[in-house]
Design a protein around this nucleic acid. Structure first.
Lengths: 277, 277
DNA sequence: TTCGGAGTGGAATTTTTGTTCTATTCCTGC
DNA sequence: GCAGGAATAGAACAAAAATTCCACTCCGAA
C-alpha cells in the first residue's frame, strides 16, 4: 500500500479538497489547512516539527490533517507539495516562452490578461530606470509637513486617490478624499489652507475639474504635490514636488501598477517620517 | 558552526565549483557530480539512500562528495539544491544590483519604493505561474451574460471596484458600484435580480459587509464572480466563477498590481465578448 | 449539572535517515 | 610484480524524523 487511496494526487486536487472541506474541518486542522495554502513551500521542505512550530500547532495535528485528507501519513501529503515544485521547475527555464504560448493559444481573455500583466511589468521596469529619487524625497517632505492632505484624483486616477485615502487612514495620516460626489468637489477643496497640502494625481487627458481643484488649492496657499505623466501637464506647473510616471499601456488602457506602488510609498514614507522614523 | 565555511552558498556558485573541479575529482565523486548537475531535483527531494541507488553509488560517496566541496555533510549540500527551488525569481539578484546602481538604497523612501515595486513584480510573476485560464474564462462568460454587473469591493479592494466602474463605463458595460456611501450598500444591492451578476473583490481580512452583500446577491439569484486570495475565503463558496490571486506584500501592505491587471482584463474581455468580438 | 464523544497537546515509540568507521579494492610509481 | 596510499563499499551507529498513544480539555446534549 504505497499509494494513498482516494486522496488528492496532485496539488490542484488537494486545493480543491481542502476548499470543499474547509467548513467541516476541526479548528486546529483548519488552521493547518490555511497555513498549507499560504506557505506551500514550507510544507514541501520543512519537517513535521519545524512546520508545526511555524504553523503554531502540534506535530500530531499535521499527521491528523494528513489522515483527514485520506493520506497514510504526513509524508504522503508532503509528496504532493514536493511534486508541485518539481513540475514548476521543469518549465522554470522556459517559463516565459511557454507562458506566452499558452496564453496565446488557450483563450482570448488569456491573451488580454497577458497583455495587461506585461504592461504592468514594463511600467515598473522602465520606471526603475528613470525615476527621480530627489523628487520622491521632496514629495514626502512636503506631505509630511502638511496638516491635512487633500487627495485629488478623478476618473482613471480615482482608484489611486481612494487607495491613498484608505492607506493614510490606516496609518493615522490625516487626509481628505476630494471625491466630487454630488458635485461637492469645489466645496471640499475650498477649506484647504496654507498649512495643508494637495496631492494631485492626473494623467492625460487631464480632467478639467482636477486641474481646477489643484489651482484653487495653490491659490489658497497650500503646497502641491503632483503625480502626472509629463512636465507639460497642467498640474506640473503649480507643483512644489513633481513625480513623473509614464505608465505602459495595452490596447489603450494604461497600467496603474507603478502609480499604485508610488502611492503606497508616499503613504508609508509620510507616516514613517511623521513618527520620527 | 552551523554554516559551512568557504562552500558554495547558492546553486550558481555550486555549479561553478563543480565545473572547476570536475577534472580532479575521484571517479565515484565525479559520477556524483555529473548526476547532481543532471538531476538537481532528485538531490533536493531525495534521501541519501534513494539518491545513492539512482546515481549508482554508495551512500557514503554522497557524504564524501559533500565534504569534498566544503560542506559539513550531505544535508548542507542538499540545502543549496532546495534553496534553488525556493527562489522563484531568478533575476532577483540582478534587481538588487540594479537598485544599488541607481542609488535607490541611499534614502529611506527609495527603499520603501523599491520594496513596493518589487512586491508588484513578484505578484505578477507568481500569478503568471499559477493562473487558472479556465476560471478566468468562466468569469468572463458569467459577467458577459449579466444584464447589470454589481461591483462589490470595500476598503483595500475599493480602488479595484472603482476602477472597474470607470473602465466599464467607458466601454459601455452596464455596472453599478456598490460603494456603501451613506450606508446605502444594502439598498443598492437589494435591486440585484437573477439576470444580474455580482463581481466581488475581497481579501483577508474580509470585510463583513462585502461578504453580506455577496450572499444577499446570491440569495436574489444573481451569478457571483469572486476575486479573492484563497479558496477558504468566505466569498469563494458562493461563487460561480472564482479568480484566486495571492498578492505579494511589503511591510504588510499588499500589492494591487495583479488584481488591477485582472480587473482590466475582465472589463475589456466582457466588453469584447458582448460586441461579438 | 453531568455525561459522552470528538478534538487536542505532548510525551513515548518506532522508523527512517545521515553519518561514521573499517576492511577491502583499486590504482600509481617504482 | 610489488609496496604504499588513496578511494570505495558496506555495515554499524547515532541522530533526527515521523508516527502513535494516552491523558486531558472542550463542547453540546440529555
Amino acid at each position: 500500500m504505497t499509494a494513498a487511496p482516494g486522496a488528492p494526487k496532485d496539488y490542484q486536487e488537494l486545493r480543491a479538497a481542502i476548499a470543499r472541506r474547509a467548513g467541516e474541518l476541526p479548528r486546529r486542522l483548519a488552521q493547518v489547512a490555511a497555513y498549507a495554502l499560504e506557505f506551500p513551500d514550507e510544507i514541501a521542505f520543512g519537517t513535521v516539527a519545524s512546520i508545526a512550530v511555524s504553523a503554531g500547532v502540534q506535530p500530531s495535528a499535521l499527521v491528523r490533517f494528513s489522515h483527514a485528507l485520506g493520506y497514510h501519513g504526513f509524508t504522503d501529503l508532503q509528496d504532493v507539495f514536493r511534486s508541485r515544485l518539481r513540475e514548476r521547475v521543469l518549465n522554470y527555464d522556459e517559463r516565459l516562452a511557454q507562458m506566452r504560448e499558452h496564453g496565446l493559444a488557450s483563450s482570448k481573455s488569456g491573451l488580454v490578461l497577458d497583455g495587461f500583466l506585461e504592461a504592468s511589468e514594463r511600467s515598473i521596469t522602465s520606471y526603475r530606470e528613470k525615476l527621480d529619487h530627489e523628487a520622491l524625497e521632496r514629495a514626502v517632505e512636503v506631505l509630511s509637513e502638511a496638516e491635512i492632505i487633500y487627495l485629488i484624483g478623478l476618473r482613471r486616477s480615482f482608484p489611486i486617490a481612494s487607495y491613498l485615502s484608505y492607506a493614510m487612514g490606516k496609518l493615522g495620516v490625516r487626509s481628505i478624499l476630494v471625491d466630487g460626489v454630488a458635485g461637492m468637489g469645489s466645496e471640499q477643496a475650498g477649506f484647504i489652507s496654507g498649512r495643508d497640502a494637495a496631492l494631485t494625481i492626473s494623467f492625460a487627458p487631464y480632467a478639467s475639474e482636477t486641474v481646477a481643484l489643484t489651482l484653487a488649492a495653490k491659490t489658497n496657499g497650500a503646497s502641491i504635490v503632483s503625480i502626472t505623466d509629463s512636465v507639460m501637464s497642467p498640474v506640473a506647473a503649480p507643483a512644489d514636488a513633481l513625480i513623473e510616471i509614464a505608465e505602459a499601456n495595452f490596447e489603450g488602457f494604461r497600467s496603474l501598477a507603478t502609480t499604485m506602488a508610488v502611492a503606497m510609498t508616499l503613504a508609508v514614507a509620510v507616516a514613517g517620517r511623521r513618527s520620527g522614523g
